[in-house]
Simulated scan of single mutants.
Amino acid sequence: MSITDRREREKKQRQHDIINAAEKLFFSRGYDEVSMNDIALEVELSKATLYLYFQNKKSLFFAIVLRGTKILNSIIREAVKKEDKGIDKIAAYRNAYNEFTWNYPDHINIYNYFRSGRFNMEPDGSDERKTKSKSNDNSIPYEIACETEISKLRKERFSILCQSVQTGLDDGSIRQDVDPVEVSILLSAISKSLSNIPADHLQALEKRGINSESYFRDVSDLIHHMIMNWDYEQTE
């Protein structure tokens, strides 16, 4: 291995260590309660060294959001491709999203914060700021590169959902009178709401003996009956 290769590997490892340290702190304290100094102490680096790798706290936060988004998309891709019928692909998408919600609750929380309006971002990952950055200093700030990638992954999830609905229209497992984009927007909204149920609503469900898992199954059953082609089901 050349000296250049070794240095690059060491650089990537240190970036990985810094992101891990920041992730631990953001998960436990939240974005606003963590400073770059806290992160430097956690990873046992000087603050000056930390700034050699990440220019600010926001860039680190965006890196962690991107990490979680990549995990989510990977789970969804793998689940959906295992199914053939459109109606089953949609169920697989919902199950994958819910699996991520259960297994990665901290990533869900920071993604919700990322999308809360706290950060000054272009709608749908617009390239406007990226273009401005290129024209100003011939480089793209790290958080903008992360934001762009997160937006691409978000669009990929929506595309997977649209394609699943279209597959269902083509194979007859989904009602022919639905619009794939309209249904996908509705299903996407439902998936997001299931990952961010208000505490008082959870309490109201629990009083009726309904926990989060049974609520998810009930919602999934309602969605299935809402979009399924009953004639197709009867021929199966």
Score class of each variant (00 low, 15 high):
Ser173Gly: 06
Lys132Met: 11
Asp177Asn: 14
Ile174Phe: 10
Glu143Gln: 10
Lys134Trp: 12
Lys130Pro: 00
Arg157Val: 03
Gly168Pro: 06
Lys130Ile: 15
Thr148Asp: 11
Thr167Ile: 12
Asp171Lys: 06
Lys134Ile: 15
Ile150Glu: 00
Ser173Asp: 04
Asn138Met: 13
Glu143Ser: 08
Glu128Asn: 09
Ser173Ile: 04
Val181Phe: 12
Ile140Val: 15
Ala145Arg: 10
Ser164Asn: 08
Ile150Asn: 02
Leu153Glu: 04
Cys146Glu: 01
Arg157Asp: 14
Glu143Ala: 06
Ile150Leu: 02
Leu169Arg: 00
Ser139His: 07
Ser135Trp: 04
Asp171Leu: 09
Leu169Trp: 04
Thr131Arg: 09
Ile150Gln: 01
Ser126Asp: 13
Leu169Glu: 07
Ile174Pro: 10
Asn136Gly: 00
Ala145Asn: 08
Ile174Thr: 02
Pro141Arg: 03
Glu143Arg: 05
Ile150Ser: 01
Asp124Met: 11
Glu149Cys: 06
Ser151Pro: 01
Ile160Trp: 03
Ser151Trp: 04
Leu161Lys: 00
Lys152Gly: 03
Ser139Asn: 11
Ser173Ala: 03
Glu143Met: 04
Lys155Asp: 13
Asp179Glu: 14
Ser164Val: 02
Asn138Thr: 09
Pro141Val: 13
Ser133Tyr: 08
Asp124Leu: 12
Lys132Gln: 07
Phe158Asp: 00
Asp124Asn: 14
Ser135Gln: 12
Glu149Phe: 08
Ser173Val: 06
Arg154Ile: 09
Thr148Arg: 11
Glu156Phe: 08
Cys146Ser: 04
Ser133Thr: 05
Leu161Arg: 00
Gln166Arg: 12
Tyr142Gln: 13
Gln166Ser: 12
Asp127Leu: 08
Glu156Arg: 11
Thr167Leu: 10
Cys162Glu: 06
Lys152Thr: 04
Asp127Val: 09
Ile140Asp: 01
Thr148Trp: 08
Glu143Cys: 05
Glu128Thr: 12
Thr167Met: 13
Pro141His: 08
Glu128Trp: 04
Gly125Tyr: 05
Ser159Asn: 12
Gly168Ser: 01
Gln163Val: 05
Arg129Glu: 13
Ile160Cys: 03
Ser133Gln: 08
Ser126Asn: 11
Thr131Val: 11
Asp127His: 05
Thr167Asn: 14
Pro141Glu: 13
Ser126Gln: 07
Phe158Pro: 00
Ser126Glu: 11
Cys146Thr: 07
Asp127Ala: 09
Ser159Lys: 13
Ser126Gly: 15
Gln163Leu: 15
Arg157Leu: 14
Glu149Trp: 07
Gly168Arg: 01
Glu147Asn: 14
Arg154Pro: 01
Asp170Gly: 05
Lys132Val: 07
Ser139Ala: 07
Glu128Pro: 00
Asn136Asp: 11
Thr167Phe: 04
Val178Pro: 01
Arg157Ile: 04
Cys146Gln: 05
Lys155Leu: 06
Ile140His: 04
Glu156Lys: 14
Glu149Thr: 14
Gly168Thr: 00
Gln176Pro: 01
Arg154Met: 09
Glu182Cys: 07
Ser164Asp: 05
Gly172Cys: 06
Ile150Thr: 02
Arg129Phe: 09
Gln163Lys: 15
Asp127Met: 07
Glu182Ile: 15
Ala145Val: 05
Lys155Pro: 01
Ser173Cys: 06
Ser164Tyr: 14
Asn136Ser: 11
Ile174Ser: 02
Val178Lys: 07
Cys162Phe: 03
